[in-house]
């Protein structure tokens, strides 16, 4: 799996660097100096990584000095839960755009606790109220951060 991800990243960087280098050719030298200095070696490095994956010897995975994903779950369970997590994350963004932060925050917390956490009604309601009170008290009352009302609410007037 990590080889496929690595190949995908390498190809994406090749496309990005290639596009960047070609676009830069049309610019004045002041603007194209750095894109060319970075874009060309970046394209070559990405090509080297892609070729290494395709033609190189398959060895053990060498971990980066970075966070590692957990391997406790079976691959299919991990894939399903990853898709669920991604759906909640993107869903929250859609909720924010449609309803605005002030409504999207309690809706997300309530829905997540009820559907994903399988918590009881009372706990879910109290927890959601507490998070909303914290959100409203800190970000709206104290810090006066400007949160727009959301596209749907604006459309409804």
């Amino acid at each position: 799996m990590h080889n496929r991800a690595s190949l995908g990243l390498a190809i994406a960087i090749m496309v990005l660097a290639g596009w960047g280098t070609l676009s830069a050719l049309a610019w004045p030298w002041k603007a194209k100096l750095f894109p060319l200095v970075i874009g060309i070696p970046l394209f070559c490095l990405a090509a080297a990584e892609a070729l290494w994956i395709v033609f190189g010897r398959r060895g053990t995975r060498q971990a980066a000095a970075d966070f590692q994903l957990s391997t406790d779950q079976a691959p299919e369970v991990a894939r399903r839960r990853t898709a669920i997590a991604a759906a909640w994350t993107v869903g929250f963004f859609v909720l924010i755009v449609l309803l605005g932060f002030q409504i999207a925050v309690p809706v997300l917390v309530f829905a997540y606790l009820k559907l994903q956490g399988k918590e009881g009604w009372i706990f879910t309601t109290v927890f959601t109220a507490a998070v909303w009170a914290f959100f409203y008290g800190l970000f709206d009352l104290l810090l006066h951060l400007p949160f727009p009302p959301g596209v749907l609410l604006e459309w409804l007037g």
């Binding site: 690595s6 970075d66 590692q68």
Partner: peptide, 9 residues
Amino acid sequence: FMVLAGWPR
């Protein structure tokens, strides 16, 4: 994907 591929961030 960087974490999955073992690339340092």
